[in-house]
């Protein structure tokens, strides 16, 4: 005469239910959290290029403006990746025998472009245009970070839609005067009141509006 289950079965039954629920819930929560980590967003990955190109040297030491190489940023959807000829504007004269520049010379003489590795990749269903952002006072560093401090370029913005929306809903804090567009060090005025005054001035003079309609980016 004995029962089918031992008294401990009650604890086991409840514990296993709680365990299953926690694993399922924890799994979902884990997925939710994972996509918010810099790792999942590809933020800490240094993208290595076929040529050992160092932005720090070109921007800080040589004081070359972003727009010298990314010449199309004020006119087109894409900022433009410099052609090999662009590199040789200088490097036909200086460091023209450096072994580090061998891939550039090979590209020039064979006519095959350098295969740069892409850092920022938006899906095709997202319409993005550099010129409108630059033209309305969004600086390079706002989205691309301190490129002047990067040996190899690293993504600093997730490019997730919520990141885009944060600025599209409230662009004011990210605006800067257009003559400071390519500055890596420009900061809004430290005094909050002055910063707000500048932001609202810029909103008005550049005609910046919040844009959250679906068709702004998905057309």
């Amino acid at each position: 005469m004995s029962a089918l289950f031992k008294p401990s079965a009650n604890f086991i039954a409840r514990f296993s239910l709680v365990a299953v629920a926690s694993v399922l819930g924890g799994g979902l929560l884990g997925l939710w959290g994972y996509f918010r980590t810099p790792y999942a967003q590809g933020l800490q990955e240094e993208i290595v290029q076929p040529v050992l190109f160092d932005h720090r040297h070109h921007v800080v030491d040589d004081l070359i403006d972003c727009r010298y190489c990314h010449f199309n940023v004020e006119r087109g959807a894409s900022a433009g990746v410099p052609s090999t000829e662009m590199c040789l504007n200088c490097h036909s004269q200086i460091w023209n025998k450096s072994p580090k520049l061998e891939p550039v010379r090979r590209s020039y003489f064979t006519g095959a472009p350098i295969e740069w590795n892409r850092v920022h990749q938006l899906p095709d269903f997202t319409y993005f245009n550099h010129s409108i952002h630059v033209g309305k006072g969004i600086g390079c560093a706002t989205c691309h970070g301190r490129v002047d401090e990067m040996a190899a370029i690293t993504k600093v913005a997730s490019l997730q839609m919520s990141w885009c929306l944060a600025c599209h809903r409230n662009p004011a804090p990210n605006l800067r005067p257009k003559d400071q567009i390519t500055s890596m060090t420009w900061q809004p005025p430290a005094d909050p009141a002055a910063a707000q005054l500048l932001a609202s001035d810029l909103m008005k003079s550049y005609d910046v509006n919040s844009r959250v309609s679906c068709t702004t980016c998905h057309r």
């Binding site: 996509f35 918010r36 997730q160 839609m161 919520s162 929306l165 944060a166």
Partner: peptide, 8 residues
């Protein structure tokens, strides 16, 4: 409806 990374 769950809080997704798209914010929609």
């Amino acid at each position: 409806p769950y809080p997704n990374t798209m914010g929609i």
